[in-house]
Simulated assay, not measured.
Amino acid sequence: MAHTPVNHPARPIYRAIGGLTGLYLVAFGVLGVIASAGNEVLAQDDTQVLGQSTNLGLSLLSALLGAAVLAGTAIGRNVDVAINQWLAYALMVISLAGLALIRTDANIFNFSVATVIVLMVVSLVLLVVGMYGKVGTDEEKEAWQKARLVL
Score class of each variant (00 low, 15 high):
Met1Ile: 05
His3Asp: 08
Thr4Leu: 10
Val6Ile: 14
Asn7Ser: 09
Asn7Val: 03
Pro9Ser: 15
Pro12Asn: 12
Ile13Trp: 08
Ile13Met: 14
Tyr14Pro: 03
Gly18Met: 11
Gly18Ala: 12
Leu20Phe: 11
Leu20Asn: 06
Thr21Glu: 15
Gly22Trp: 01
Leu23Pro: 00
Leu23Asp: 09
Tyr24Ala: 15
Tyr24Asp: 03
Leu25Pro: 02
Leu25Cys: 08
Val26Glu: 05
Phe28Cys: 06
Phe28Pro: 03
Leu31Thr: 05
Leu31His: 05
Gly32Cys: 13
Val33Phe: 09
Ile34Arg: 09
Ser36Glu: 10
Ala37Gln: 12
Asn39Glu: 11
Val41His: 03
Val41Asp: 13
Leu42Val: 04
Gln44His: 13
Asp45Gly: 14
Thr47Asn: 11
Thr47His: 02
Val49Ser: 04
Gln52Ser: 09
Thr54Met: 12
Asn55Asp: 13
Leu56Arg: 05
Gly57Asn: 12
Gly57Val: 05
Gly57Trp: 00
Leu58Phe: 10
Ser59Cys: 06
Leu61Tyr: 11
Ala63Arg: 08
Leu64Met: 13
Ala67Thr: 15
Ala67Ile: 07
Val69Met: 11
Val69Trp: 01
Val69Cys: 09
Ala71Pro: 00
Ala71Val: 08
Thr73Ser: 14
Thr73Leu: 01
Thr73Ala: 14
Ala74Gly: 12
Ala74Asn: 07
Ile75Met: 09
Ile75Gly: 07
Gly76Ile: 07
Gly76Pro: 04
Val79His: 13
Asp80Met: 03
Ala82Gly: 12
Ala82Glu: 10
Ala82Lys: 14
Ile83Tyr: 00
Asn84Ser: 14
Trp86Val: 15
Ala90Trp: 03
Ala90Arg: 00
Leu91Arg: 00
Leu91Ser: 02
Val93Ala: 15
Ile94Asp: 08
Ile94Ser: 06
Ala97Gln: 06
Leu99Gly: 15
Ala100Cys: 04
Leu101Gly: 03
Leu101Ala: 08
Ile102Arg: 03
Ile102Ser: 06
Arg103Ile: 00
Arg103Trp: 08
Thr104Lys: 06
Ala106Gln: 15
Asn107Gln: 12
Ile108Asn: 12
Phe109Gln: 01
Phe109Ala: 13
Phe111Val: 09
Ala114Cys: 08
Ala114Trp: 01
Thr115Gln: 13
Ile117Ala: 15
Ile117Gln: 10
Val118Glu: 00
Val118Ser: 12
Val118Gln: 06
Leu119Glu: 05
Met120Thr: 14
Met120Lys: 02
Val121Phe: 03
Val121Asp: 06
Ser123Asp: 05
Ser123Pro: 05
Leu124Val: 04
Val128His: 08
Gly130Ala: 11
Met131Arg: 14
Met131Ile: 11
Met131Gln: 12
Tyr132Asp: 05
Val135Cys: 01
Asp138Ser: 13
Glu142Tyr: 05
Glu142His: 07
Glu142Ile: 07
Ala143Leu: 09
Trp144Leu: 02
Gln145Ile: 01
Leu151Trp: 04
